[in-house]
Design a protein around this nucleic acid. Structure first.
Length: 422
RNA sequence: GGUGGGGUGGCUGAGCGGUUGAAAGCGGCAGUCUUGAAAACUGUUGUGGGCGUUACGUCCACCGAGAGUUCGAAUCUCUCCCCCACCGCCA
């Protein structure tokens, strides 16, 4: 969420940012609401001040054993007027607060403006493998090795669910174990294991609600939501808390399953393993001081890249354009691993700086040591990395002519020392 | 799910209709003392917001959340949420 005062004082800047995002949101309506709110607030507060004074008078009269009847009568009047105005004020405040929850974050100056094709490939790593046979795609490989059962997954849950089997299931487990170990050992992250079900407040804190409710799995009876990413529970760990400056930066990593309805995303990419309703992901979350958040962002991306490098998967780093970054983000890099079987660059990580957008919503602050003042932290997160598509990249990059798949070296200790599947 | 007890400032904890933003203690900060530190003593110490001639002043709000009673609510009533204990169920 943006600070209403900031919006009021920088209306043109906010409008330009909305244009850059191709958002149709009307900021003038919000500013008008804010003006109306402040006007009412002034009136209400004036009445309240009168009320307080009258109350002191009554109190004094009672103490002096005098009759406060006249005062009480006039106080009744003030009270009634106050209640009426207060009601109006509350209605406006509610409208304003709701409207503010729909305003996306400002776009950082380093983000290329324009449509998604304006994204910039910042760097690439690894070389694309030259095959001496036509590479198969991951579906063929997985079915041949009998490590994913698409048919039975559909039977027990529906389309776009996966059932990993045998070495497929083990590979999945090996991957997230390896990633968690890597980030905790080499990158200084603390591992957490959060709940998969979260409440409405938590979903609002990171920005999924109220705008994207349709994309979320929701348990109606309890008003709980299945997390679409560990970002949601992990970022909210410090909701409504005040951190000390010395505690920052805080680096957390978590493995969770992620659940996405992706309502309306039919068509391409839905077959097989590219877009599924449940997938595994290791997430990286940072809480940092505002002045260092862009530096921390670059480090976060490097942490995610290290995983792909360790796995030996060729990838590229893409700086998303203003119309492609998510609602809550100021700046975002995607990591795309190359999958030769489908001949595609697959998004396996998305690393964003949210600046104070989420911190403001979730009310995560810290106290500065020198000035003793409170300030919102900056939050960042990135996948480190998302499985499923990483599995695809591994299967397609490491496939052999005979149909087997070589296991990346770093994973072997997690797989009984095995070198190939089968 | 049932019964009982609770939710007050950074923390512990008093207050249970009228100068209570809230006692006291701890912690934090500043000072005195000290070669320095500790101890002791003294002072100080919340957050958010409105307005203005904006290093300041002033007003308003905030005692889990919301509604109600009342001239007036941290204090009384109701609803909800959360925590603790015990019971039930259970991996």
């Amino acid at each position: 969420m943006l600070d209403i005062r900031f919006i009021r004082e920088n209306a043109d800047l906010v409008k330009q940012s909305l244009l850059d995002r191709n958002s149709k949101l009307n900021i003038d309506e919000i500013i008008a609401l804010d003006n109306e709110k402040r006007k009412l607030l002034r009136e209400v507060e004036q009445l309240r001040a009168e009320k307080n004074k009258a109350n002191d008078e009554i109190s004094r009269l009672l103490k002096e054993k005098k009759d406060p009847k006249d005062k009480i009568t006039s106080m009744k009047e003030i009270s009634a007027r106050c209640d009426q105005l207060d009601g109006q004020l509350r209605t406006i405040e509610e409208k304003l607060n709701t409207a503010l929850l729909y305003v996306p974050n400002l776009v950082h100056s380093s983000v290329p403006r324009g449509t998604p094709d304006k994204a910039q490939i910042v760097r690439s790593w690894g070389s694309l493998r030259q095959f001496d046979f036509p590479p198969r795609n991951h579906i063929e490989i997985a079915e041949h090795l009998d490590i994913v059962d698409f048919t039975r997954a559909a039977k027990i849950s529906g389309a776009n669910f996966l059932l990993f089997k045998g070495w497929g299931a083990k590979l999945e487990r090996a991957l997230f174990n390896f990633m968690l170990d890597f980030h905790t050992k080499h990158h200084g992250y603390t591992e957490v294991f959060p709940p998969y079900l979260v409440n409405r407040k938590t979903m609002t804190g990171t920005g999924q609600l109220p705008k994207m409710e349709e994309d979320m799995y929701r348990l109606k009876d309890d008003d709980l939501f299945l997390i679409p990413t560990a970002e949601v529970p992990v970022t909210n760990i410090y909701a409504d808390e005040i951190l000390e400056e010395e505690q920052l930066p805080i680096y957390l990593t978590a493995y969770t399953a992620c659940f996405r309805r992706e309502a309306g995303s039919y068509g391409k990419d839905t077959r097989g393993m590219l877009r599924v309703h449940q997938f595994d992901k290791v997430e990286l979350v940072k809480f940092v001081k505002p002045e260092s958040s862009y530096e921390e962002h670059e480090k976060l991306v490097a942490n995610a890249e290290a995983i792909l490098q360790a796995l030996g998967l060729p990838y590229r780093v893409v700086l998303l354009s203003s119309q492609d970054i998510s609602f809550a983000a100021s700046k975002c890099y995607d990591l795309e691993a190359y999958a030769p079987g489908v001949d595609k660059w697959l998004e396996v990580s998305s690393c964003s700086n949210f600046e104070s957008f989420q911190a403001r919503r979730a009310n995560i602050r810290f106290r500065r040591k020198d000035t003793k003042k409170l300030d919102y932290v900056h939050t960042l997160n990135g996948s480190g990395v998302a499985l499923c598509r990483t599995v695809i990249a591994i299967l397609e990059n490491y496939q052999q002519k005979d149909g087997s798949v070589v296991i990346p070296e770093v994973l072997r200790s997690y797989l009984d020392g095995k070198e190939t599947i089968p």
